[in-house]
Amino acid sequence: MTKAKAQRQARETATAFGFLIPFTLFYTVFTIWPVIQGAIVSFHKWGIMGRQKFSGLANYAKMMKDRFFWESLGNTTKFTIITVPMLIILAVSLALLANRKSRLQKMYRVCYYMPNVLSVSVVSFLTIYMGSPYMGFVNGLLHTLGAPNSFEPLWLKDPNLVWFTICWITAWWTVGFSMMLYLSALQEISPEIYEAADIDGATKTRQLFNITLPLLKPTTFLVLLLQIIACYKVFGQIYMITKGGPGTVTRPLIQYIYETAFTKNDFGYAAAMSYALFLILVILSVIQTAVQRRSEA
């Protein structure tokens, strides 16, 4: 009896590994191994042709003194600090608007989420064509609406305006995802709470600030951390819209890593900087997981 059971157990284990092997293989080679490989590479002088020599912590020491590393990390941080609050306020507002009883409810949701399915190239391309002076859509619209002809904001070139442009198009592009998270949270709030508040004579505005927004707090924590993580990975739209310019004032960390590896052929240093980013992101995800556990408990 026990022998038969043991046999079945062994067969089940064999089957399980059969089912697990393909996924585990790809997962290990392309997700886990690069993390280890990255650490190894960061301790070496390493070029496109491979390992050149062991260099200990030299890449990390270089990083601490590299003005451009700190500048690009600062740019990424600046992008995060501007974009995330904007995104959260926009996401909550859109979710509240799209959650009202309305015949157009479905259309609102579809429109607000739509930009999310575009690729970063299309988004960047649209921004370039809409934001260019003289021929662009935005300035054209401003002139059509009566702005003087001399009014020609350089949305893509002015060092201050370009930040505004990049952050807003990122918000436009990605807000749908956060809005959906808020919408599903809103739908979980029991209507009875509002009915009770109605009976007590609370106005809609008071209900919003004293019931709805406090109940959305866990979602806000989640969205906050997910968006901080997403913002620290910013690359595509800045790379395509400004190339990191003018000069290097908008260059994000990932672009600097990319250029270090692929134009300066310094993979070792690029790996060391990747590890710095990796560390920031892992700390953020650990916080996120902890916060989520707490709010679920």
Binding site: V35, Q37, G38, V41, I254, F267, S274, L277, F278, L281
Partner: peptide, 13 residues
């Protein structure tokens, strides 16, 4: 593991 932060070693792999 954020894919963007391991892009350089992924390329090497």
């Amino acid at each position: 593991v954020p894919g963007e932060a391991t892009i350089v070693p992924l390329f090497i792999t």
